[in-house]
């Protein structure tokens, strides 16, 4: 069917920003370790370990510097199943977004669990990372899978 001449014109409009950020001391160590398939958290004054490592204590704002290796395995503390992934999401097939608490860390973080089907997912399940062939030092170098 042809549109009438008075129909409004439409066009795809793609807006993108090619941001790069410099990482600084702590996050540089975090992403360098990730490229080496290792996970770095950071210790707070109260002894607990934040993962991912960050520069400042979120409660007291004091500078943090004691990097601590955690993981690589962990547990799912909560999750949601993505049955129909959209184009820019991390996997093209169904997967879970989950909060994963790595062994040795005290805080969970949001990441992808490639479980195959929703029935394989459970709160409290153990997961392990699966890295891509050539990690570049980015958070999407790996996904989790059931351990």
């Amino acid at each position: 069917m042809t549109k009438p001449a008075t129909a409004a014109l439409t066009a795809p409009h793609h807006l993108s920003y090619t941001y790069k950020r410099s990482l600084g001391k702590v996050l540089s160590a975090f992403f360098t370790a990730l490229r080496d398939r290792r996970f770095l958290g950071i210790r707070r004054a109260n002894g607990s370990v934040l993962f991912p490592a960050k520069e400042y204590d979120p409660d007291t704002s004091e500078s943090l510097s004691e990097l601590v290796e955690v993981g690589p395995t962990g547990i799912v503390t909560t999750w949601v199943w993505v049955a129909q992934p959209r184009r820019q999401q991390p996997l093209a097939h169904p997967f879970a977004y989950a909060l994963v608490k790595l062994d040795g860390a005290d805080t969970p973080f949001l990441h992808v669990v490639d479980a195959g089907s929703e029935s394989k997912m459970a709160t409290g399940m153990r997961v392990r990372p699966r890295f891509c062939d050539v990690p570049k030092g980015a958070i999407d170098d790996f996904v989790f899978e059931p351990a």
Binding site: A8, Y17, T18, K20, L23
Partner: peptide
């Protein structure tokens, strides 16, 4: 060497309607 810079592009896809 150490990873010093993180590339984090942002992109948004719109279907733009010009209106009448």
């Amino acid at each position: 060497g150490p990873v010093m810079v993180l590339s984090c592009p942002i992109s948004l896809d719109y279907a733009y309607s010009a209106g009448q």
